Amino acid sequence: MKLRLQLFEFEDLPWFPEVIRAGMMDYLRFMISGLRIYQPIVPLLREALQATGQQHIVELCAGAGGGTEGVALALRRQPGLRQLRVTLTDLYPQPEAWQLLQERTAGAIGYESAAVDALAVPVGLAGFRTVFSAFHHFPPAAAEALLADAVRQGAGIGVFEGAGKHWHEMLLAWTILPVAQLLITPLIRPFRLSRLLFTYVLPLIPLFTIWDGTVSILRMYPPDQLLALARLADPEHRFQWQAGKVRHRWGPEVTYLVGYPR
């Protein structure tokens, strides 16, 4: 699917209730982590980290940290990356969800409690930057600015979307995934009474998840558009870039862009 529509997602809106946003992010973290969606990109990240000599990942737009735990632990099993650590950041920080990841990984995953703008990352947050399931939120000018900030600061960056941008993925977002959300919500931790209320009594979390999930696929950049943005962000060709798709062994695809200094 080459079509890209710059529609809106509710979670991007400043007035959107934080309790609903947190419920949506918790569900996505649970699903992405449980299904190990981002495991296919571990070799890509390993190569980039080794090429840059980095032992620190700064995750931008982390949401509730979906996918981070599995990827970080897999990377820490690789030679030369045993001391890898991850710092979660977001414009809308979620320290309660991040604290759980910090405890489960014995501190391998930490977080920045202050808001962090992915288009102007503080110099003190040095490390290889990653963006999981969030790059599609940025319209072209902002997406280019995000990449340009990494180039300007000489920070390698990996952009990963947990889909291949196919019509059948939208069908899943309308049918199977909402049913799964109703089934798994009681299992999600940390426990929140509000999550149960807004899932089963007043089902705002599932309804907004369906909308945002559909729009996410329509807003995704395919590999050729990712490379075009990278070239605009790096006119002096300071970085080495690659983009494409990798497939999970049971079917789903991950779309990616990876760049680091030559």
Rank of each mutant, 00 (worst) to 15 (best):
E236M: 07
K245N: 08
T175C: 13
S216T: 04
V215L: 10
D212T: 10
W174G: 12
P252T: 06
K245G: 01
L204H: 14
Y256T: 03
G259Y: 09
A243H: 00
P186C: 05
A230H: 04
V201A: 07
I210P: 08
P190I: 02
W174Y: 15
V201P: 01
P206S: 09
Y260I: 00
T214H: 15
G213L: 04
W174P: 10
L196D: 02
G259W: 06
L207G: 14
R231E: 15
H248Y: 05
M220L: 08
L227T: 01
L257D: 02
P223C: 08
G251T: 12
E236R: 09
R247V: 13
Y256A: 02
W211H: 14
Y221P: 01
I210R: 11
E236D: 12
Y200S: 02
Y256I: 03
A228G: 05
T214L: 15
Y200C: 01
I188V: 14
P235K: 01
L196G: 01
M220I: 03
Q240Y: 15
L197N: 05
G244L: 03
Q181G: 11
S216Y: 08
E253L: 12
P206G: 07
P203H: 13
F191R: 11
F198M: 07
W241G: 00
L182W: 14
L193G: 03
L232Y: 06
Q181P: 06
L193D: 06
M220W: 02
L202G: 01
I205Q: 04
F208S: 13
P222W: 06
A243P: 00
F208E: 10
L193H: 09
A243V: 00
R231N: 11
T185C: 10
S216N: 01
A233T: 02
W250V: 09
R238I: 04
D234W: 07
V201L: 11
L197Q: 07
R192P: 06
T255Y: 00
